[in-house]
């Protein structure tokens, strides 16, 4: 009986740990949504979009590193996750080097 109760207490503790960690990330994510929404209405000219994308990137990193557990992942899994950004960078760089260098 007491062993079972100790097991229950341990399970409850594990559950509480999971909630505490994840709730913190969730709260930060919600704050970032409100921040980016508010900033969208400030007249910052050309800086509105880069700032919004920066906040979006921060949200994506939080989800990737904590919720998708990249912080615990082995090197080859991080490499697989990071590889996408290399190819995306190539795709954007080549497209915009063409677009930006055209006369009209």
């Amino acid at each position: 009986m007491s062993v079972e109760r100790a097991g229950d207490a341990k399970a409850a503790q594990r559950g509480a740990d999971i909630w505490r960690r994840s709730l913190l990330v969730w709260a930060i994510l919600m704050l970032l949504v409100l921040l980016t929404l508010g900033l969208a209405y400030l007249p910052l000219g050309r800086f509105n979009m880069p700032l919004a994308l920066l906040i979006a990137a921060a949200k994506a990193v939080l989800i990737g590193v904590i919720f998708m557990e990249l912080r615990l992942a082995k090197g080859f899994i991080r490499l697989a996750a990071g590889a996408a950004f290399l190819w995306i960078a190539v795709m954007f760089a080549l497209t915009f080097s063409d677009l930006a260098s055209r006369a009209g």
Binding site: L37, A40, N48, A52, I55, K59, A60
Partner: peptide, 18 residues
Amino acid sequence: VDVIWIILYPLLYLGGRS
């Protein structure tokens, strides 16, 4: 799928508001 929406949100909803 959530991360993709996070990127779409500023692109589609936050432009031209200020």
